[in-house]
Design a protein around this nucleic acid. Structure first.
Lengths: 198, 198, 198, 198
DNA sequence: GGTTAAACGAGACGGTACGTCCGGTCTTCCT
DNA sequence: AGGAAGACCGGACGTACCGTCTCGTTTAACC
């Protein structure tokens, strides 16, 4: 974007990191709307103008800050031999991370912004949604190759059927997002609510 | 709260309705954060103090305004004879309403507030979540009585398995919330992703 | 300007006075450019928005603040029987006041603004220049009636000849603005630099 | 100050002149406070750091820029044979120059700075005030030698009596600074407001 | 002719103030 | 007492400018 010919003073990586750290820390303390850019600047020991030079809005900054936080733990799903096992090894770490700290608060705020800002929405999905969906898609591909599920399975629906309930509990908070719940969701999604036609 | 002895001038129902209408109209135009109390007051032809006399915060007002909007259409689920049919007759109208206008924007904003305000969260769930869950719970009760599903079925998980994917698409917007999707979700939730043990 | 029907909460005279006092105090401490609106607001115990509601710019506020300060002492010229005496009784108090505190600093700043803002310039002259000139004009009128000076005397030039040197010393500071200087200016202006044609 | 041993790259005279030209041009366009150092740098095709290397403040730069502009016309007073003629030949070109362009705006701004910065004030007077006063003083010296004025004449007062009214009109703008006015001031200052004792 | 020292263009940076906006409260008069 | 009007405090917003800095580059004078 800026500084296109390597001319002039280079961007301070120290400032960049301090800003992201400060934003992340504050976002875990209180709601996004309660976090002021002045507070981030002060905590990072940085000028407000420096923040605005690189992030157009508070939400964009929050997106980056959360992304850095979120990706410290990167659960890579291993092949457990069955779709059920694969899904559990993918979703359980996600659920643990999501409920380990008030990430739901930030996530909700980002989703709110995404409702009114299509560009932001795309950015959000590319960073937070698609990678997980791609991983899960790979699991289903593997399951298809194994012959566990038929070829015509609507995978996109299945993805929503798995992630939807998790986000639902995270955001609505009507019940906790436990390992037990993850197992129940996987079981019920795989086997169905109705008893099998045996 | 106010006017406990029925003394003095009674509350203007006209003002109350004008405020709710103005708020609802503005909320369908733009994001909650872009709607100012001054704008609501002006549009309603009402003093800002009057709003604050009856609603503590902008979010509380938005909750009431959306509630009024949302409940203009009240889909009452009829008995179709099967759980599948009952669920479709409950969820399809909900999905149509939710995606008919930018309600997702307001909903996301309310959810965001709920993340940091437990009282508000309870209020929100009582008004928007529990009624639907209660209705759905009744359908499952009926299905149990019919013998469609076993007695030990984890209904709360099932509810999240059904509503979760709908909210997921509404809020994330990675794919549209169509009738087709509702049908797919109901089918897949009832029958399971894996093929039956036939 | 605002509040045209006497409706609504009336303007707080207490806030108004606190703002003027704070501005005046700060202007006597440091240069106008060093006085921030935030500082005035804080010192006055007032919101910045309240200042901007009633004064469009810092300079307009400074004008009012200085005017209040300046007019606490209102030297009224008495009839001394001679033009020389009248002028001394008018100009000496002015010079004393002008040099008693760092009013020159504020005056210079206001004059600077007046150079680029015709509306402000008019306002400035009406408040600070014209009243004095009117008073002096009256003295010359009296002198004409006495027969001290001929009827065709160019009074506007005479006014500049008297006030000009005083402002000159005040603003340039190449020499102090003393009583002695005022007397010298009056004498030399009345009698001329060249010796009389006696 | 810098480059004491003539070592290293010499100062770019081209940059120096471009900066002064840019500053002068901008100062004739708008008020000093509206002229930003960034704008000067951009217009001069120069780095901001280069400006600050040679001029400590914007005001110091403005002083130099105006000085260069002002001294393009250098009115040298010739001996006309009488004090009156000499003064006219000194003051008339000055008044014409001062009112020919918006120099009053810059002058006022410099005077404002001088009110709070004694070092700057001295610099300002040495460059803009003292040379003229010295020239005028020489005229009075000549007049004394001619016997036009008595030996005890207070020349410093006389200088203020002549320049004061001109600055007064220039800065206050209550009336134009015309040749006619210069003549009137000289006449009235030399002959006095009161009629001679003939 | 290679080294060195300073000046230079570019532009990021910390800091400060700007003028605006909005959330919530309060005051006055009117109904 | 309820309500309309609107002034008020507090505080965050995003912008603009100042004066400094850190780069890489250029330009002479010196060795």
């Amino acid at each position: 974007m800026t500084n296109e010919g390597n001319r002039g003073r280079p961007r301070s990586q120290q400032a960049r990191q301090a800003i992201l750290d400060a934003a992340a820390a504050l976002l875990l303390e209180r709601a996004l709307s309660e976090v002021s850019m002045d507070a981030v600047a002060q905590r990072a020991g940085v000028s407000k103008a420096t923040i605005y030079r690189w992030w157009p809005t508070k939400e964009a900054l929050a997106l980056d800050a959360l992304y850095a936080e979120w990706n410290t733990v990167r659960p890579f799903p291993r092949d457990t031999g069955s779709l059920r096992g694969d899904l559990l090894s993918l979703l359980r770490p996600w659920a643990r991370l999501a409920s380990s700290r008030p990430y739901g608060r930030v996530l909700a705020a980002l989703l709110t912004t995404a409702q009114s800002d299509p560009v932001f929405a795309t950015e959000y999905r590319q960073r937070f949604v698609e990678p997980r969906r791609d991983q899960a898609r790979a699991l289903f591909q593997r399951a298809t190759e194994r012959g566990e599920i038929p070829a015509g399975t609507k995978i996109d629906v299945a993805l929503d059927l798995l992630y939807g309930p998790l986000y639902h509990r995270l955001l609505h908070g009507h019940a906790p997002l436990t390992d037990r719940f993850v197992r129940d969701v996987v079981d019920m999604a795989l086997d169905g609510i109705l008893p099998g036609p045996a």
